[in-house]
Design a binder for these strands. Structure first.
Lengths: 214, 214
DNA sequence: GTCTATAGTTCGATAGAC
DNA sequence: GTCTATCGAACTATAGAC
């Protein structure tokens, strides 16, 4: 049981409460109770609820996208003669999120925050995704074009959007797959989902090279 | 400009306000202003905020899923000798949502509500999806197995989950595809998205018949 | 840095006139 | 059915002691 400072406790509590109830549904009171500190301390360290949310979001997404960038660097290392596989790109896209999203906590709380933020269309969500995810997204879109011959630039963008959509099944982890399969499928079983997501998306992207629309 | 009764005005306003701000972020006051009625009238007609949300959700989802069921009935009509194509199943899955989601209103407000509800993991969202979407989901899962030889039952469930995930790109319509493509891709252009979603998902599902995991 | 106490606002819901 | 008026609870944020 490591002693950690109040800021970290607050961020951990915020991650969990925001994941369970959303930005509007979560309250500063609830977060302060979960963190075991006075409510005023949240404002002392982070100013407003809005800025606490941004700090909570940045902490994990910066770690995730640093790792993603490092993996892309390795895959496209200078001097490497052959291109990486599409499957290895998808591993680099998804693994850091499912590995860095939880840290000691039960369940992957940040993935739920991310799924909700990516799908919302309010200004706060849009700005967070644009600031923290658009640059790395461009790198993956470029990578798709390099490893899939004949993939048009616009279809590389669609490929990325669809891939993220499929990955949402794993990130949101609503338990619906289990319900629909009578308990056979488990959307929290990362390895099982990855084993299906990767071939599914790979084949989907390849198929976009041959469709006829503009 | 058709005269409509207060209940319909309230549901229309609720759909729009809930789509823009979520359940917790929307207020009964805001909805009453948008509908042009007194706030007390919302409680007279629908009781609580919770029940208003459910009424708003049911109105569109019942219309959508009645249409989906009718399309499945036609595709698998008794006496029909040949099986429908996978592409035609995906049309039956997605078209009713994008066509019935808006009715006069600009933008497809209900699709945004649906995307948020499907991805959330609170009890209200889970119950609404289970009540209004699980039965028709089972019909699509069964249909996938019938038209794709060699698709295992559990992979048919994953196919459905992944298909819905891809469709979220269109339903959430956050504008991100446009941002990432410098304006070339438009996630509100239903025909353009459908032209790519259908081959993408079709190829993805076919690919699941040959992967080796259990 | 961390606390208690509270100011000031907004919320969902209801009472009661018409 | 529709309105005005309002209650009591919850919220974000701040003031000020230690």
């Amino acid at each position: 049981m490591p002693e950690q400072n109040a800021s970290q406790s607050i961020l951990d509590a915020a991650e969990r409460i925001f994941a369970l109830h959303g930005f509007e549904g979560a309250s500063m009171r609830q977060i302060s109770v979960e963190a075991g500190v006075a409510q005023a301390l949240l404002h002392y360290h982070f100013g407003t609820k809005e800025k606490l949310y941004e700090a909570m979001f940045s902490r994990r997404s910066d770690a995730i996208n640093t790792e993603r960038a490092a993996r892309l660097d390795v895959l496209f290392a200078a001097g490497g003669e052959q291109l990486p596989s599409l499957a290895s790109l998808l591993e680099a896209l998804f693994r850091p999120t499912v590995e860095f999203g939880h840290e000691g906590q039960a369940g992957n709380m940040f993935s739920r925050v991310l799924a909700a933020t990516a799908n919302a269309d309010d200004e706060r969500s849009r700005a967070l995704i644009a600031t923290h995810y658009d640059a790395i997204a461009q790198r993956f879109i470029d990578a798709f074009q390099r490893v899939v011959p004949g993939l048009k630039p616009s279809d590389a963008v669609w490929s990325y959007m669809f891939a993220i959509g499929v990955g949402m099944t794993m990130m949101a982890a609503t338990g619906r797959a289990g319900r629909l399969s009578g308990g056979v499928c488990n959307d929290s079983d990362v390895d099982a989902v990855m084993a299906r997501i990767v071939p599914f998306i790979s084949a989907g992207i390849e198929a976009l090279t041959s469709h006829s629309s503009t």
